[in-house]
């Protein structure tokens, strides 16, 4: 079971309230799809400059594995407060701890409630993944 303290998107990002901020990352499922368990297969990650304003659904960065480049999409709207600069040089964090140490960006959100139509709770995300596996 994935963490219950956050919401999930169909493009496999998670978003979590933390005080005045929201924290965004990608799920273990997304990481597994990209690198099949080989942490060395993740090669690049581009994150946005702090201060950038993002709309919900907007691409805020990209991650590359040896096989594919994937967009990173903002689950909610807001302004980038900070980014996890360690990620760009230590991508293996993502394959190890995508839920905490592997956070990607922190936003000052436009709304303090995570109630976007597209957002799923952990149970709904599990069901979504199960369905996508056929």
């Amino acid at each position: 079971m994935r963490p219950n303290d956050r919401k999930y998107t169909k493009t496999h990002e998670w978003v979590k309230l933390s005080g005045e901020e929201v924290v965004i990352g990608i799920t273990d499922f997304a990481v597994q799809e990209l690198c099949s368990g080989n942490e060395g297969d993740l090669v690049y990650c581009d994150l946005p400059e702090p201060g950038r304003s993002l709309e919900a659904g907007e691409t805020f960065g990209e991650i590359e594995s040896v096989k594919a480049v994937s967009d990173l999409n903002a689950p909610v709207a807001g302004t980038v407060n900070s980014i996890n600069v360690q990620i760009e040089e230590h991508l293996e964090i993502l394959s190890r701890d995508p839920w905490n140490a592997g956070w990607l960006v922190k936003l000052a959100p436009r709304s303090k409630v995570l109630d976007g139509e597209e957002l799923m709770d952990a149970a709904a995300y599990e069901a979504f993944i199960a369905a996508s596996k056929h």
């Binding site: 493009t11 096989k67 594919a68 480049v69 994937s70 967009d71």
Partner: peptide, 11 residues
């Protein structure tokens, strides 16, 4: 040679 782009649920 092979490469991919994954964007918004499309490949």
């Amino acid at each position: 040679g092979s490469a991919q782009r994954r964007r918004g649920g499309r490949v």
